[in-house]
């Protein structure tokens, strides 16, 4: 029997799931190695659980989602969250920092029909998660590596160190040192494929905090480079605003 794979969606944009469809050539190989039991983005046909591997996209934003993620956990041997929404709450977790009623008033003319929690939270706040795949969106190479590692019962080769090491391996010239451009790379986990620094932009932190990030030291440097406290506070508030290391560093500049 081939292992059963399920892909689930919560509050999110679908971009991470699409990375799986984006695998193209490898997708055929993958379809040969696993039974895709639940993946609504790809097919209406679903099979009942339990599932060997569940990939979960999206943050938990409604009461219904709270219940559903518990059910999925019960049905899954391994549960892996994919993307910034599922691992940190995503961009929608910005509302965690604001007054929810006010946010609703601002966005919707008639907020009465909104049925939502006041916060958007990572899946790991609700159930046990076996592995977190970072990114906004995730990297398809890392996704394949994760499934590969699962199938071969080994640890995934997914490093937790800084984006800087991707720069250096790729030969990218550091934008912070050579141009004084702000960059979140030193506190951000590698894995995106060095997208921003490789085109001369600072890292936006899509892959969330690196292992034991020293964001306070980075902030001091950013201030020396001319960033004011208001910008510094916003700087850590992007896709991973609710990841503890970024959330706390941002709060220090309120």
């Amino acid at each position: 029997m081939k292992p059963k794979l399920a892909v689930w969606k919560f509050s999110s944009c679908d971009g991470c799931q699409l990375s799986l469809l984006d695998c193209e050539e490898e997708l055929l190989q993958l379809a040969g190695a696993v039974q895709i039991a639940h993946f609504l983005e790809a097919s209406r046909a679903t099979r009942p659980g339990p599932y060997d591997l569940s990939l979960v996209e999206g943050s938990i934003s409604t009461a219904r989602e709270q219940a559903q993620i518990r059910w999925i956990r019960e049905q899954s041997r391994q549960l892996v969250t994919i993307g910034a929404c599922a691992t940190a709450g995503g961009i929608q977790a910005l509302r965690n920092l604001l007054d929810f009623d006010e946010v609703q008033q601002q966005v919707y003319p008639q907020p009465d029909f909104i049925d939502s929690l006041a916060t958007a939270t990572p899946v790991s706040d609700h159930v046990k998660v076996d592995f977190e795949l970072r990114g906004c969106p995730i990297d398809k190479g890392q996704l394949l590596e994760l499934i590969n590692a699962f199938l071969n019962a080994r640890r995934p080769n997914i490093p937790a160190w800084s984006q800087c090491q991707e720069c250096k391996a790729a030969g990218t010239v550091c934008v912070m040192v050579s141009r004084g451009e702000p960059c979140l790379g030193p506190v951000t986990q590698a894995g995106c494929g060095n997208r921003c620094p490789a085109v001369g932009r600072g890292c936006y932190g899509c892959f969330g905090p690196a292992e034991r990030p020293n964001a306070a030291a980075l902030s001091r440097r950013l201030q020396e480079l001319g960033m004011d406290p208001a910008s510094l506070q916003r700087y850590y508030r992007l896709f991973n605003a609710n990841a503890p290391a970024f959330r706390e560093e941002s709060a220090r500049h309120e």
């Binding site: 080994r154 160190w161 800084s162 800087c164 090491q165 250096k168 030193p186 506190v187 020293n214 030291a217």
Partner: peptide, 28 residues
Amino acid sequence: ARCLHCGNCTSVCPTCFCTRTEERSALD
């Protein structure tokens, strides 16, 4: 308190030589 442990220093150092190995298995 100052160090980001980003690893830039070891990456650019012309003498630092440390490596690790990684297994890249086929899906099957």
